[in-house]
Every structure is written in C-alpha cells, then in structure tokens.
Amino acid sequence: MSALKLKKGSTSHSAYNLRPTFSDVVEKHTLAVLVENEPGVLARVIGLFSGRGYNIESLTVAEVDHQGHLSRITIVTTGTPQVIEQIKAQLGRIVSVHEVHDLTVEGPSVERELAMFKVSGKGDKRVEALRLADIFRANVVDSTLETFVFEITGAPEKIDAFADLMRPLGLTQVARTGVAALPRGD
C-alpha cells in the first residue's frame, strides 16, 4: 500500500491509494494531520473520531508554523486497513485540514513520547528505581525523601517498559504527552 498524501479536499488523492485490501487484521497507524490553527479545529478532529466510532490511542497537538497558521496533530489510531483508509479520507474532508500523512506507510519515521513518573518508596526499592532510571536514561526532575519524579523520552514501547518496571517499586502517578512523530530522511 503506498502512501496516502491527502491534501486539501484530497486533491492529490491518486486512485491507486484507494485500493486497500479488505482485511480483518487490526493495524496501528500514526497519522500526522496539518490543520489550520483556528478555534474549534481540534474539536472537529476529535468529533470525527467519536462520531464515527474510530479509536484514538494518543493525540498530541501544537502550533508548528506560526506564520502559516498551522498546527500539527499527531494521532495514533487502530483499525482494519479499510477503517484506516476511511479515517484518512474523512480527515481529508474536514475543511480546516490541509494535509494528512500516514507515517506508518509513508516510509520510515521516528516516534517519541515524553512521560513523567512519580515513584515513592524507601530503602532498596528507592535505590533500585534510581538504578533502572539510569539504564533507561530517565532524569530525576524532582525528589523528596520519599519520592522521585522521573522524566523519560522515547518510543512509546520504551516508556511502557519503564512503567512496567517502576510499578512494583512504588509507581504512584504517570503523565504522558502522547506521540510526536516525523518521517525520517527527506
């Protein structure tokens, strides 16, 4: 399946991309959606997902081009190939959407997420938490005598793995940003 680069109103939608295989396999895709930075635009995107029953695994949004008035929404979603194609086409219909990129099919991309973990404990557990944080290159951004707040950046899987390790050591709170992603190379 080739990359679906939906420009506005799907201008550059080549017919070839409209031929997904109808399969039942659920895939995870990371979509980058460039939108007009205007009030309500996030509600339009989220409303599309809730209204049509699509999944959002994570969603991040921030302005990326002040002059061009553009924000970038990165959405991690799951669905069968047909559903993923529908999601992209439906996003492309939103008048405020300029471009839709499926980073999962448009060639290699890098994904990063930032997370903060609060771990409370004493003695051995506290030492073990610090040791593991070091291995995962997590930074301590706050500490009291009984708590640490770690900051960790990486692919979502790495953050999941770190969370799994911290849980028995006294993990009490987690904050995650959701995925930001860019294609590699040119």
Partner: peptide
Amino acid sequence: PSSINKVIKADIPIV
C-alpha cells in the same frame, strides 16, 4: 474520496 471503499470495495475508484 471518503465515499469510496466506505461500504463496498471499489475495483475501479475514480475521484
């Protein structure tokens, strides 16, 4: 484009 393949798979899709 969202009408195409929404319900029925199109063998020859034309936007």
